[in-house]
Design a protein around this nucleic acid. Structure first.
Lengths: 197, 197, 197, 197
DNA sequence: CTGTAACCGAGACGGTACGTCTTGTCTTCAG
DNA sequence: CTGAAGACAAGACGTACCGTCTCGGTTACAG
């Protein structure tokens, strides 16, 4: 008997539909009213779900928030445009869009909620930042492979710098103008990027 | 007599001493126990101050936190070492130290507390981020004046990029290794910096 | 099946035990420390109950106080002694005891607390004063039935007069001497009582 | 030197006008909004007086309230109508009016305010109840002197009973109907009153 | 006519109760 | 066994009020 149905489950099955509904409602509330503006009571009520279930599915509020953010952060793979400059431009579009949502402040707030200490481990952050990171890294790697970027480019540092710049500007409430983006791309294509040691 | 003192205040004067005491206690509690770990009840009790006074001086908890962070962010002017590379190295030391304290998460949390929306205006952020910014800008400007950095250097973008990189790494829980700092300094001294349009 | 049990309650049931515990603690605190000396914070703490629960069960402090007083005011039915004079004497013993406790001032204070205006309705007073009234009325009625008191005796007015006399004396800080009680009883047995119109 | 002018006062004299203004405002607020509805802050503001002055003139809130009630309780001497029944009827008019104001509940509340324990002594009650008592007693005494009431009438008990009846009815929220008043007067004129021992 | 002593309005302050809110747990009943 | 309904403990938040205090200014009598 190669593989029996996973565990011969008994009783009422998990309501995966309701679970997803919660994440969507949470995502909406987070963007509209922020971290503190999302309350578990209301989330349960609106999702037609019991608080018991919420706390069965996630250990605490911070965990729901992080998972909702992870879901929001999902993005389609960046297509190979055959042109490194065009691809970098597409990458910056995503960086700016991400920074313009309040995703980062929300993540910081969730991760500094004392409740999260117990259960929301670093793995969540890995998933949150990491989700996009892999795709972004692949894009930059293509530039390196094409020879448009230096062979030893420190891709992670480069991406952290670009994302960090956008995020920091967001914190300051200042926009990231086009000409800055243009310049960063030109600099990169000219080989002015951090290199691996 | 051109203008007499503003309004000849009546009534008992503000107890500025107690006000400052609150900020110091708040700063300590924030570093030790985080945003949620600081409670107004205890702060009032420890400072020997009534809650009424707290809420007279600041509109809500977030406002106290931001002001305490502003006070924490004050730093001595960066001395002129006569050597741009040494100065940049000193600047990065501060950037790393700042990113490794909990200051940034606290600020983000406070500024995203819905209570702060009403009263804690953008000016607080200006003060918070701006306090250090002026000093950092002056340091970089000295490098430009000495001719060690390009004449048209976009100092703000450069600083946002460096600070953002450090902060983003902090969020990811990854350290910023020395060789990366070395490389960024070398790049800057080679003139590879964003320029004003 | 004409009507099934009202709604087949769902969710955790009310903790009636804790509710009763609160009333008892409140009664004790009222007698020892008065209306202002009873605080909701402490009551919650001592009863091992959350403030939320207190305010779920009662709309405000005054409501708890009134209900505690109602519980205190409960008294055993006055036994039929077969002798009207002896029964009236027993009634006066209760009247005096009631007037000498702090029950009346507490009730007046609670019912004049502006918080009570909204929620503590007249029904509370009915219950508070009415609890004892029924028993007292029954006692006097027995005297009427025996023919020891006039047939048309206005029992309510008679009881209000006697209770009012004792209460008024309490307010003035003057005792109600035995001979006055004796005389009132004699007057009543001689038929000198207010009559229904 | 038999008696020198009291103390040869120096400095600014007491502002008796403002003091009286406070009492009037307090009386109004008490009747409209009750004991807790009268706040010292507002009283000071409305009277154009500083809180400092309020607490110079009276030791605490209860003291102001009691003094305001005493002022409210003042009544013109009851004229000799030459007719005991008419006079008793006038007396009952006053008793009813007094009971219909919330004077008694207010007095009870004030005297049970823990703050009053220190400073508002029994003498205040004497003044409050006593002010009217003397006048009422004189009126009843005239009836005794005329021979319309028994020689040994216990006037104090009689008045406490009548006042207490009206007050108790007020507490119960029930009116005192005319026919009851008529009957009490008839009973008294028939000699059915408590007698001194 | 000037000094000085007592008074005054304004209002900030310490202390503390009130009533509301939210998180995370627990209990019951229904599917 | 899972899920909805919702009561519960704990405790923070922001508001209100009392009685005290400190300030600068005002009014009277004294020299």
């Amino acid at each position: 008997m190669p593989d029996k149905p996973p565990a011969a489950r008994r009783g009422r099955p998990l309501d995966l539909d309701a679970r997803r509904r919660c994440l969507e409602l949470a995502a909406g509330a987070l963007q509209e009213r922020g971290y503190a503006g999302l309350t578990m009571n209301e989330l349960a009520r609106q999702a037609g779900v019991s608080k018991k279930s919420l706390y069965t599915w996630w250990p605490n509020k911070a965990a729901i928030v992080v998972e909702a953010l992870v879901a929001m952060a999902e993005m389609p793979p960046l297509p190979d445009l055959g042109n490194t400059e065009a691809e970098l431009r597409a990458l910056f579009a995503i960086i700016r869009r991400t920074a313009s949502t309040s995703e980062l402040p929300l993540a910081v707030t969730a991760l500094n909620d004392p409740a999260s200490r117990t259960a929301v481990s670093r793995t969540y952050i890995e998933r949150l930042v990491g989700a996009r990171r892999e795709l972004s890294r692949a894009l930059v790697q293509r530039g390196v492979d094409r020879g448009d970027l230096p062979a030893g480019t420190d891709i992670d540092t480069l991406l952290d710098m670009w994302n960090g710049l956008a995020a920091y500007r967001l914190l300051r409430g200042v926009a990231l103008p086009d000409h800055v983006v243009d310049q960063l791309i030109v600099m990169a294509l000219n080989g002015n990027v951090p290199l691996l040691p």
